[in-house]
């Protein structure tokens, strides 16, 4: 019996089917738990699915590269999903036009806060310069953050990890922060989460309300652009002081 199981494992671990299937199974299991818990943000499905998969890969001694051979088919859909954000945004267009000024000012304030406070706190706690530079773009979506980190002297792949940590913590904390501040308007709640916690925050916002999701998508996209401009400028300022 044992040799046959080993043969099957050798075959499966070389095929993309396993990584792809594991991703879908882990996510649906995580989502089931999340749903059963009444969409409690502490049981964020992205976080749970990642924990389950990291545990499974570590236990079976599977490398990330082997896993990603299969999981890349899911990963690829991030592109068309980003484009699809145009649809809810268009449906909110009338509200968007009226809110142009509050949106622009909140975006600048949020973007500055995210960069300065992240780098400042890590600096106070004695982080290395490479870590500081990789932290600066942590609130924006992965491909933009990796590009910014590379440009200012951080490590792109470390930046990607910090982006994930930020997204998950934002999706987990947003409800408590916003409830604490008595923010009830879904456009405000969504926009703030999109600025601070990019796509993972946006995904959480869509689970709550389509309006929050649309504004989160807007915040995510706009903060990507603003951070790409602000982070290098702030670095010049910091070096100069």
């Amino acid at each position: 019996m044992t040799p046959r199981i080993a043969d099957v494992w050798v075959y499966l671990s070389a095929s993309p089917l396993l990584g792809l299937t594991l991703t879908l199974v882990a996510y649906q299991a995580a989502y089931w738990v999340y749903q059963r818990a009444g969409f409690n943000p502490l049981l964020n499905p992205v976080l749970l699915a990642i924990l389950m998969l990291v545990a499974a890969l570590t236990l079976t001694g599977t490398t990330y590269a082997t896993y990603f051979d299969g999981a890349q088919f899911v990963h690829f859909l991030l592109g068309p999903a980003t484009v699809a954000l145009a649809v809810p945004l268009y449906l909110q267009f009338d509200k968007l036009k009226k809110l142009a000024l509050p949106l622009a000012v909140a975006l600048l304030a949020g973007s500055l806060t995210a960069i300065v406070s992240a780098v400042g706190i890590a600096w106070l706690l004695g982080a290395s310069e490479t870590t500081l530079l990789s932290l600066a773009p942590k609130s924006v979506t992965t491909p933009i953050a990796m590009g910014i980190a590379e440009k200012i002297g951080g490590i792109p792949s470390l930046a990607a990890v910090l982006v994930m940590l930020t997204g998950v913590s934002g999706a987990v904390m947003a409800k408590y922060v916003l409830d604490g501040l008595r923010i009830t308007d879904f456009s405000v709640r969504g926009f703030a989460v999109g600025i601070a916690a990019h796509g993972i925050g946006t995904a959480r916002a869509f689970q709550v309300s389509e309006q929050a999701g649309a504004f989160a998508g807007l915040g995510m996209g706009m903060n990507g652009l603003v951070t790409a401009i602000l982070a290098p400028l702030l670095l010049i300022l910091w070096r100069w002081i």
Binding site: A106, I121, S169
Partner: peptide, 21 residues
């Protein structure tokens, strides 16, 4: 530093953006 910076700064960014808007 990594956990403190990501968690605190993300909460701050959510709060500041929302309050300003």
């Amino acid at each position: 530093p990594i956990l403190a910076a990501t968690i605190i700064s993300t909460a701050l960014a959510i709060g500041v953006s929302a309050l300003v808007m």
